[in-house]
Amino acid sequence: MTTAAFEAVGLARSYQLEGVSVDALRGVDLRIEPGEFVAIIGPSGSGKSTLMHLLGCLDRPTAGTLRVNGTDVSTLSDTELAELRNRAVGFVFQSFHLLARTAAVDNVALPLIYRGVPRAERRERARRALESVGLRHRLDHRPSQMSGGEQQRVAIARALVGDPQVVLADEPTGNLDTRNGAEVMAILDRLNAERGVAIVLVTHEPEVAARARRQIQVRDGLIEFDSGTAGGPAEPGGSRTGPAAGEGAGRTGSAEAV
């Protein structure tokens, strides 16, 4: 068996809110292979964002273990965690998170700064990443000079520039109209197919989730449904087309079989 991109066992995260302990994730077992295209769906407050943050190494679990490319993140210092984020993961956010007064090419090159890549090489790689999302003509434009769809494509280029194994996309189409949303999804789809980059996207839109090859439904801090790894050990009754939202009842806990 190859090394999983993510391997979570009993993953839990609780927060202290004004003295009250809130369990956002209550023991999730999950394995995502390299090159997968996974959608995590669930209503707001279900814990899907928390799961995303844990997978992206932005946060640490309060219980359970998480391996990213075989590395147990609980053994890593903050600095090593930052380096792991830099190399293994690319982020795409709902609100794009571009530096406002910075040209597209410099926004895209940002992760490479923290990897110590020299300036000329950074710009060259950023240029190629922008070309791969169809923004060759927008290199020196600032975010304010671009449409929302273009801004999100810049963000995708930034996620890709460091050649990560996984791109984590948190509601990537949430701030976009249907046409731009479809365009962004098409790019993610193509990247997954052509480059073999694993894509994990969090969404609450069923039609967006349907474009992924695997759907994982989260509710109340637990995985409620997992359509299973494509071509892998498929779930009993696991469906490539995914569940209609909220229809995963009865398959709760199926993730344990992964």
């Binding site: 992206g56 932005l58 903050d78 600095t79 930052a82 380096e83 984020r85 830099n86 190399r87 982020f91 998170h97 530096l99 940002l110 992760p111 923290y114 990897r115 930034r158 460091g162």
Partner: peptide, 13 residues
């Protein structure tokens, strides 16, 4: 700052 950290900036960066 949050973005930079997500992209791999260490505390000292």
């Amino acid at each position: 700052i949050g973005l930079r950290k997500a992209l791999g900036a260490r505390q000292r960066d």
